[in-house]
Simulated assay, not measured.
Amino acid sequence: MKIRNMEGSDCGGILAVASAWWGNTYSSDMFSKWYITHFRETCLLAEEGGRMIGFVMGFMSQTNPDETYIRIVMVDPAYRGKGVGRALYEAFAERAVALERSVIRCVTAPWNKESIAFHISLGFIMEPQEQELEGIPVCIDYDGRGGGRVLFKKRLGVEQRTVC
């Protein structure tokens, strides 16, 4: 498996597989050349034999200069459980450290128990919230449109910088 930065030319391939890999209709402005151009350092694609088998798209926070954010990860269903997602997260973390970031944040849906377990296995912690759903802390109305999410945070091996 090879992990590389995305290129604008990857957009067509991502758009072609996103809904099938997600298991439901999925579209995003992130699947565009402009997003990849502006956030290339944190958009990674996994390939095997020249074929896309997974990707992660994120960004570096401008508001919180020690943080990066993973917005979306998708893995070809035929490759799930084979370490592709873990390798993408590890490559993203390596990139974050190289960019002197000390925190990765990401979210998942509270009903997605596999995703919750996956993030915990990678060393992410669920951030406490005022509400819980079946023992899971849930940020209600996370997206401003009524969607609740489980918020994850992972500290990386970078000295936290002081902003003056």
Rank of each mutant, 00 (worst) to 15 (best):
A93C: 08
T37K: 13
V138W: 00
A98L: 08
G123W: 09
Y35A: 04
D66I: 13
A98D: 12
Q62K: 11
H38F: 13
E90T: 10
V97T: 08
E130V: 08
C11Y: 04
A46H: 02
N5H: 15
C164N: 15
D141Q: 05
L151D: 01
I72Y: 04
E132H: 08
Q160M: 14
A93W: 01
K154V: 04
R155K: 15
A46K: 02
G135F: 05
V150P: 00
A98P: 01
R4F: 09
E132S: 08
T63Q: 15
N5A: 09
A96P: 03
E132V: 10
S115V: 05
S102A: 10
N5E: 14
H38M: 12
W22V: 07
V56W: 00
A109K: 12
I53L: 07
F92T: 01
R145L: 12
I53K: 02
I116M: 10
V150Y: 00
A20L: 13
V163E: 07
R4T: 09
Q129E: 13
G23A: 10
W111R: 14
E48G: 10
R149S: 03
F59E: 14
E48M: 12
L151M: 09
R105S: 11
A98W: 08
H38A: 11
I36S: 00
V56Y: 00
F118H: 06
A78P: 03
I116D: 00
M57S: 02
L151P: 01
L122V: 09
N24D: 11
G157I: 08
M126R: 11
L15I: 12
M60L: 15
Y142S: 03
V17L: 12
E132D: 02
W34A: 13
S61E: 10
E130D: 12
R80L: 04
F124Y: 10
K154P: 02
L156P: 04
L44P: 00
G12F: 09
E90F: 04
M60R: 15
A87C: 07
L44W: 04
E90A: 07
E48D: 14
N112W: 11
E94M: 06
E114C: 03
C139D: 06
A46Q: 00
R71H: 13
G81F: 05
I36K: 01
L88N: 05
M30H: 11
V163H: 06
L133E: 15
G123L: 11
A93I: 08
G54Q: 01
C106A: 06
E67A: 13
E90H: 06
K82Y: 06
V138Q: 00
G123E: 15
K2T: 15
R80S: 05
Y142G: 02
S32Y: 06
L44N: 01
E130G: 07
G157V: 08
C139P: 01
V84G: 00
R71N: 15
S19C: 07
G23N: 08
I36H: 01
H119S: 00
V73M: 11
S121W: 05
G58K: 06
I140P: 02
W111V: 10
S121K: 13
D10F: 08
A87D: 10
G135N: 06
R4P: 03
A46P: 02
F39N: 14
A87F: 03
L133D: 11
C11W: 02
I36C: 04
G50V: 12
Q62E: 15
G12W: 04
V158K: 12
I125H: 06
